[in-house]
């Protein structure tokens, strides 16, 4: 899939969580234009067209970013802060998907400009439902900036 077609950028270091999330999105029909990156550093490389993503056109950005918080190298919080402080990426909705139920993280993410904060349920049934709902809401219901 060429990077220009990527509609959802998904940053998740856990392969299991990534697989389950992508599976849930696939079942909802939103996974075909998703690009998965393994950590925050790669996410920023993708967006700023650096490293292996230098070929990507910076003007063709994803419509939605799904961001895990706890990641190696650059954390999801740092990626969030960077993107929301950059006029180029500020308007892209960012959904925080995390295992943490800690209040400080939730408050901090919304302060930095996160659009949604979702705690990933342990129960797989609930997990699939939540992911499906996210895809439905952001990709279908919401009118995103061009």
């Amino acid at each position: 899939m060429p990077y220009s077609e990527v509609e959802i950028l998904f940053a998740e270091d856990s392969p299991e969580d990534a697989m389950l999330t992508i599976r849930a999105l696939k079942k909802s029909g939103f996974a075909n234009k998703l690009h998965h990156v393994k950590d925050g550093a790669e996410a920023l490389d993708f967006l700023y067209c650096r490293g292996i993503y230098t070929s990507r056109n910076i003007k063709e950005n994803p419509k939605l970013i799904l961001l895990d918080l706890k990641m190696p190298k650059v954390s999801g919080m740092e990626v969030l802060e960077k993107l929301k402080s950059d006029p180029i990426f500020r308007s892209i909705p960012i959904v925080i998907l995390t295992s943490s139920k800690e209040d400080p993280d939730i408050q901090k993410c919304y302060n930095l400009g996160a659009n949604t904060y979702i705690t990933k349920p342990v129960d797989s049934d609930n997990f699939f439902i939540v992911i499906k709902e996210i895809g439905l809401y952001w990709m279908i219901l919401s009118q995103l900036p061009a």
């Binding site: 299991e16 389950l20 599976r23 706890k70 800690e102 342990v122 699939f128």
Partner: peptide, 22 residues
Amino acid sequence: FSYSVSHDLRAPIRAINGYSKI
């Protein structure tokens, strides 16, 4: 510790549960 439990324990259980469901 709570944070660790919350974040670190939930992920593997979710994986077990999720893959079992698959």
